[in-house]
Each structure stands twice: as structure tokens, then as C-alpha cells.
């Protein structure tokens, strides 16, 4: 099942990556939480683009590093919220 010479997950991942990047750059209620949730969307799109090239180790590493960077962002946001309120 090839569409215009490309695998279908490549095209779907590219569409999700572009639209998700636009949504993460301009969040509607403009705060950090909405931006972090919107940042998850192009991450999964990039996972689909990586899927169309045959590298299993890259997929595993990207998933692990994505969760790790989300944890670091959460720690930074909690420290900043605590600094403002307390």
C-alpha cells in the first residue's frame, strides 16, 4: 500500500508533525501546561516518520528520551510554580 511512492505512515507522520508543531508554537490558552500537552503531538508524529526508516534501536531510544525530557520539563515547571506561589 504505497501512496505516491511513500509509505502511508511517512505521510501521516509528516502531517501530524507539521500540524502539531504549529499547534505547539501557538497554544490557544497561553500557559505552560497547554504548550507541554501540545508538544506531545509532534513527538508521536516524529515517531511515525522514524518508523518509515527501518531502525528499531532509533525508535526505542527516541521513546525513552521523549519520556525523560517530559519528566525534566515537569520538574522545571514544578520548581517555577513553587517559586512563584511560595
Amino acid at each position: 500500500m504505497m501512496v505516491a511512492g511513500y509509505a502511508p505512515e511517512f505521510l501521516i507522520g509528516l502531517a501530524i508533525l507539521l500540524i502539531g508543531t504549529t499547534a505547539a508554537a501557538f497554544p490557544r490558552p497561553k500557559n505552560y501546561l497547554v504548550q507541554l500537552i501540545n508538544l506531545e503531538i509532534p513527538g508521536w508524529g516524529l515517531l511515525l516518520v522514524l518508523l518509515s526508516y527501518d531502525e528499531a534501536l532509533a525508535l526505542l531510544t527516541f521513546g525513552a528520551v521523549s519520556v525523560l525530557s517530559t519528566f525534566i520539563y515537569v520538574r522545571v515547571m514544578q520548581k517555577k510554580e513553587g517559586g512563584i506561589s511560595g
Partner: peptide
Amino acid sequence: DRGYLDVVTATALIAPLSTIFILMVC
């Protein structure tokens, strides 16, 4: 569909951790 069953197993187990980290901020 691409046949990466080990990748699916690992990703399905570590993807909810990301959601739970965001829920702490919520």
C-alpha cells in the same frame, strides 16, 4: 504493521509514564 513487536511492547509500557508526569502538573 511494520513488525516491530519489541518496540511496541517497550513504547506501550513507557508511554503512560509521560501522561502521568503531565498529570502531576495538572
